[in-house]
Structures are given as C-alpha cells and as structure tokens.
Design a protein around this nucleic acid. Structure first.
Lengths: 339, 339
DNA sequence: CTGAAAGCGCTAACAT
DNA sequence: ATGTTAGCGCTTTCAG
C-alpha cells in the first residue's frame, strides 16, 4: 500500500511537500501539485485516515449509541429511520458513522465515556435511551460533544433534537374533539420518557381548553409496547364502556389497543376512535389504517447529525432543534356516534 | 487524556512495560501488572485505538456497504434487520461497525476500494447491491476481505451468505399446489438479482415436479417494488382471469398484488391465493396477513459478520453459508375454489 | 522480568 | 516554494 513516502521518493520531493500538495495547501506551486497528484494516482495511493487522525486528534467520525438496536426496535423502525437520516447527513458532511452496540452485558464493564474515548469519535448521537438510563447522567458530566434524540439536555457539550410533543398531542386530541368525542382516554408510554411527559401535557391541555373533564383513571401506561398496551387497553375498555376515543403515545401501542378493542367486540372506528403517534410504516398498512401524529424521523436524524457536526466546528450556535409534527387522518378515527 | 506515557511516569516504569502489563503479556510480573492497572484506573486511562491501529495495521473495524440505506429501504426493513444482526455479532467479537453511505453521487468519485482503504476497515459486508452494480466487479478484483449478502461470489478474499432460494420458492409453490391450485403465476423481482434467478428456478421446478404446464406470460417482474408489482399484477390478472394463485418473490410485491386484486374486485384469498417471500414485519400485520417464505434476516447479518471475521483470522474455512427458510402460513392463501 | 529504540503514516512548526 | 525535525500514542524487536 503506497504512502506519501513512496510518492515523495518517486517525485523526488520531501514528504512534507507531498503532504501539502495532496491537501491543496496554498504554498505549493501548481506544477508540483499536479505532478504529485499524478504520481499518487499512478501509485494507487489512498490516504491513511488512521495516521491522519492520530496526529490531528480528530477522527471525522461520529458514534451512534442506541440503547436497543437489537430485536425489539425492529417493529417500529423508528430507530432505523433516524439512523438513515444521520447516515445521510454524516456522509454529506464527510463524516463516518460508527455504531456502538450497547449489549446490556457490556454496559456494565464499559462506561459511555470509555466507549467514546477508545474509539476516538469526535462526537456522539444517542437515541432511544430512557431518562432513567445511567448513560444519561454520564453524558452530561462528560465533555464529549453529544446530541440526544428526544431528551432535552442542554449544556456546553450536549444538545438535542426533538419534536414539539405538547403541540403534537394537542393536535391529536383536538382532532378527536372536533369529531365530537368527549370521553377521550390516553394510552401513554412510561414515566421514564421525556416524550411521555410532554404528550401528557398536551393531552391535558387540549381537554382543558375544550372544557372537558379529566379522568385520571383514563390515563394509562402501555410501555410503548403493543402487547402491554393491548392488555392495559382491554381492562380500560372493559371497565369504562363510556370511552369513545383513545389517544395513544405511539402507533405500536395503538395497534395493541385495536387488538384489545377487537377482542371486546368494539369496532374501530365506529365505536372507538384511535389516534396514534409517530406514523410508523405499519400505520398506513394495517386495517383500519391509523390516524396519527406524524414525525419526520429521517429528518430528526439528519438534524441531529447536522447539529452535532456544527457543534464540533463552532460551539456557539444554539444546541437544540425543534421539529414539527402533523396530523395524518386515516381510517381509525371517525365522527362520534351519538346514540 | 492520559496515555501510557503518563502511567509510565507515575509508576516509574518504561512505557514498554506499561504497554505489556496492560495487554497482559506473560513476561510481566503479576505485581507490576497490578500496580500498572491500578494507576491506569486512577488516571482514568483509555487506550487509544487509533494509535494502536496505526502500528498494528488492523483496525478491528468492519465496514457495511449498503446500496440504499436511504429512503426506499425503509419499507421492507430487510436491511435494517440484517444490520442489527451484523452489529450484534461485531459487538460480540470485539469489532466496530462503520457505515459506508454510498450516495449515488459519491459512488462516482470514490471507488469501493478507495472507500475501504481510506477508512482502513479490516473487511466489508455488502448488502443490497444488484448483480449489475459496478461495485461488484471491484469486489472480486480487490483483495479486501468481503462478505456479500445474497450474491454468490467465492474467491480467496470474498465469501457470501444466502438462503436456499430454490428450495424456498419450491416450498411456496408446493404449498399452493397442495391447496389445489394449478394456475399459478409468478411475480419475480428483476433480472439483476441473484435471488430472482434462483426463485424462478424453484418456481419452475415445483411446477414441473407436479406435472403442471408452464405459462411464460405468467412470469413477470415487479422490480421488488409494491408500486410496480401492483401495476404489473393488474394487467396480468385482467388478461388472465384463469390464474388462481400468485407466488411473489417479495412480500412488498405481494402487497402490491393484493392491491391490484382488490381494485379488480378479486378477493384474497377466496379468489386468489398469494404467497410472498421474506416475512417482513408488515406481512403479519396487513389484512389479509401474508403467507410467506420466511428468512431469518437477523441471522443472515449475524452469520455474515461471523464469516467475515473468521476469514480475517484464518482464511482456510469455506467462504459461504447457506441458511434455511420456512413456510409461514397465514391468511393470504386458501384451498382452491373449484367452481 | 524490564528498558531503549525504532517506527506505523501522517501533519505542523520552523527554518531556509 | 520546499525541506528539516519533531511528534501523535502505541507495539515490537532486540538487549540486557
């Protein structure tokens, strides 16, 4: 494998000059540049990123830390779409993306900081961790540049991108209210998710604005899982037949709720309207297709990468980005059936 | 950031000894090892992978080259599941995974080989490229260790993992035949896919075995896209009402075929049985749910990584792995309705 | 068991 | 415009 040394020998110049020629420095004569580049080509030279990184102390690499790239994440390919966006932006801006797999067993032996420092990534993007995760506290205390997805931490070295979850939830509930629903339950995720808090806020605020009473028993947690949501919804619907609509904090849970409804012989949307959240791929394919709050996951990833890289270059810009959501009306909601 | 030099100074030993202590060499006294490790810990030392890679000429990193991690791939999260498997195995075996985004524009300026050599990956896994892709020829001629997903190239430096596509297709068609179908069409992918060739082989062979005639007009290409498949199927079904079953080379296309059938007022599975291929997430969620040939995508990724890493260590093992598929019977197939 | 010295491929002062 | 020198942090002969 040819190195700049080989090129230097070939053209009869010092390696310094070769290095500078290759990197288009201003103080190298065009002639030399041309010769050097020709020889480089002829020798089939590829620069050694490793060597460069070592001396420059920059790897042009960002890490992606996902709590569960593994199995479960496959269902809602939320993570995947985010990853796709990150990857694109990183590529556009000349950065490499390396995946950190945090298998739970490894999590114990290696700290977040160690992980990042060993691999010498310039910065990290973290997605899909709970607010209770031990990594989170580490992030804030470490000084590794970092962007979080959907967790609002803002310090000198860490920023975040998220969507307006309060507004998103409000849109969902308001849609139901406009359809004439007044008995609206809420299937939330879990207490360790920032988005859950915000979506609850939106749910409550929408009801309040409409002058609707709040039933605390109608606010339940489905852990963001379809199976859990199904179980919880089954109970909820069985005990509270007056409910005519449910807003779910994720599409996956909405799917679970539909299953529960089906089992109870409750028709969606005739007897029960359901709004999901996320607009995952499944949402448009299932029957009935899901009315939902759509977030642009690809864009979240793209923005996260862009934010991180901008932080790497110049740490003065604001460290947060807020994305919009929009309501997508499909088949799982309909006008309230006054009997 | 502490280096072994700092440790050396602290413990009053040479950096050589420190390096060997840290790496558990046999010729360092247990006492020294202990002291060194303690100091390392105290100094919050993290080894510099970059520096190590430079001298060892091994990065312990594998690259993943996907033709389209981008947008389209989101629908069938085939790639994602493969990625998940690769990531897990790489993690298990102490390798990092870096993503190569081959945006089509970049594809022109950088060759496959350059890409790999610059980043100094030890090996590469390539997924989702067509047999016509220019990368493919490069792979074979380059000597970079490489494992292909679903493309059978076998040389000293390249291997592959795939499933038994002939057998898979046969299982699908035989299932239809057992249900009493005799007029069975085939929606294939495109001519540049290895799997398409194999699945066609299986389709033909199953018909032949059953003594069923082959209609060449009933073998069509849907480009692995639901939209294309829908269009093509619409024509096919309209012009050949005698068809009672269609085997599709991918679930996504099966979805398209169902749409076409619905538009033509053909009921699935009552009037038309459909078998897909892949068993993507959607398959079990759509209505009617898809009977399909399931391949373990996670496992394909895992095996690919394992194969690659084994090739890196010891190039004597066979360079290919064949995985099984199995038939999953759901709602899109039923007994042929003899009228 | 430990250390001195060389070097991986590259960049960056600081000359010239 | 080009060359000299030093060094990034680590491993690895080769000598004690």
């Amino acid at each position: 494998m040819a190195t700049i040394k080989d090129i230097a020998k070939e053209v009869g110049l010092s390696i310094t000059t070769v290095s500078r020629a290759l990197n288009d420095y201003y103080d190298v004569s065009p002639k030399t540049k041309k010769r050097v580049k020709e020889v480089a080509e002829a020798l089939n030279y590829s620069p050694n990123h490793i060597a460069r990184s070592l001396v420059m102390k920059k790897t042009k690499t960002i890490g992606l830390l996902v709590s569960d790239l593994m199995r479960e994440g496959v269902k809602d390919n939320f993570t995947f779409e985010v990853l796709t966006g990150i990857n694109k932006c990183a590529g556009d801006l000349g950065y490499d993306l390396v995946l950190f797999s945090t298998s739970s067993d490894k999590q114990k032996e290696k700290t977040y900081t160690q992980l990042c420092r060993e691999r010498r990534v310039d910065g990290v993007i973290i997605s899909g961790i709970k607010t209770s995760d031990r990594y989170l506290t580490e992030v804030v205390t470490s000084d590794i540049p970092c962007v979080l997805i959907d967790i609002p931490v803002n310090s000198n070295s860490v920023g975040f991108v998220t969507t307006d979850n309060v507004l998103g939830a409000m849109k969902a509930v308001q849609h139901l209210i406009e359809l004439g629903h007044t008995e609206i339950a809420f299937m939330n995720g879990h207490d360790f998710a920032y988005v859950s808090k915000k979506r609850l806020e939106g749910y409550l605020s929408a009801l309040e604005k409409a002058g609707l009473p709040i039933h605390n028993e109608w606010i339940v947690n489905g852990s963001f899982l379809d199976s859990t949501a199904e179980k919880v919804a089954y109970e909820l619907l069985q005990n509270n037949p007056e409910i005519t609509a449910i807003f779910c904090a994720s599409d996956l849970m909405a799917l679970g709720v539909i299953k529960a409804a089906t089992k109870l012989n409750i028709k969606v949307p005739e007897d029960l309207s359901i709004v999901g959240y996320d607009d995952i791929l499944l949402a448009s394919y299932v029957t009935p297709s899901l009315t939902t709050i759509s977030q642009d996951k690809y864009q979240m990833g793209y923005q996260a990468a862009e934010l991180l890289i901008s932080m790497l270059k110049d740490n003065t810009t604001p460290h947060q980005r807020l994305l919009n959501t929009h309501l997508v009306i499909r088949e799982s909601t309909s006008l309230h059936n006054k009997q």
